[in-house]
């Protein structure tokens, strides 16, 4: 609708911006994608280069059971990360959405501050916290809760903690927007109609926050599915994830065609899940 109105009103600047936007996307998004797709159909050269011989072999290798396990593990981690992010983010987002203006600004800034630091550095910080002689183990031993340091780093848990930490803001922000749109009067109305706190949450807040959960879910699920820094640094590369596998194919094994095929496999999976979500009732706009 907005596009329509823009197109009918002052036509020239709109056309100009449409053309420039299309050019930008075509040049920096679509073209590389086509290139990677081309590479995924090529063969690996003897010493790691690309030989332009068309083949389906790379995609056949994607269907290998070993790769399947990695796919499954990545999906599980990404799914769990999304769910935990949603659970942790909701109370935070609620407080943010209902806070008075000055407080809202302060809290939002606090949520955004981590973005001002490089993701790699922030992930290294978790290494310092979690490793055997790290902050957490030292603290627990000093306080007498532990005799021996717990093996925290290079476990599934550490990867998981890293993912939740890294992507939490992407869940918080859409939820804040969604909750802000729910009138506090609706909460009052529910209480006035005999709802307990829990019932009000289940029947009013939760269903009306669905758009926020959906947007946040997509923003958390997709990057954590392809994440490679976190599994690499906090998981020690012990258990392969999709992101780390792709990274290794490109940089270590120097098998660009297989890496490209894996990338397209990942993209295909995400698009399939997106399509399936759209067909359920959750995907439909409740308003």
């Amino acid at each position: 609708m907005l596009i329509n109105r823009l197109a009918t009103s002052s036509a020239f600047p709109v056309k100009l911006s449409l053309v420039s936007a299309s050019l930008f996307l075509g040049l920096f998004f679509f073209l590389p994608l086509v290139l990677v797709f081309g590479v995924s159909l090529a063969s690996r050269g003897m010493y790691g280069g690309i030989t332009w011989i068309a083949t389906w072999e790379n995609y056949q290798r994607v269907l290998d059971p070993l790769v399947g396990v990695i796919f499954f593990r990545s999906l599980l981690f990404a799914g769990l990360t999304t769910v935990v992010c949603a659970v942790v983010a909701f109370p935070l987002a609620y407080c943010l959405a209902r806070a008075s203006r000055p407080w809202q600004l302060i809290l939002l800034t606090l949520v955004m501050i981590p973005f001002w630091t490089n993701f790699l550095v922030r992930t290294y910080a978790w290494v310092l916290i979690l490793r055997a002689d790290g902050i957490l183990n030292t603290l627990l031993i000093r306080l007498g809760f532990l005799e021996e340091p717990l093996p925290l780093l290079f476990t599934d848990v550490s990867v998981f903690v890293g993912l939740v930490y890294g992507y939490l803001p992407f869940m918080v922000l859409p939820l804040v927007v969604a909750i802000e749109r729910i009138s506090p009067q609706l909460e009052d109305a529910a209480f006035d109609l005999y709802a307990s706190m829990g019932a009000m949450f289940r029947h009013v807040l939760l269903p009306l926050s669905t758009p926020g959960f959906l947007a946040g879910g997509v923003l958390v699920f997709i990057p954590s599915l392809g994440a490679f820094i976190t599994p690499y640094l906090l998981g020690g590369g012990q258990k392969m994830m999709l992101g780390t596998l792709i990274q290794q194919e490109f940089l270590v094994a120097r098998d660009w065609p297989f890496g490209s095929a894996l990338s397209f496999g990942l993209m295909g999976t995400v698009l399939l899940l997106w399509f399936l979500l759209g067909r359920t009732s959750v995907g439909k706009d409740p308003s």
Partner: peptide, 20 residues
């Protein structure tokens, strides 16, 4: 007493109907 223990109901200013 909390609202749900009072024999009172309210019609809110902008009705506050549950939109979903």
């Amino acid at each position: 007493d909390p609202p749900h223990e009072r024999p009172v109901n309210m019609v809110f200013q902008h009705y506050a109907l549950f939109p979903h």
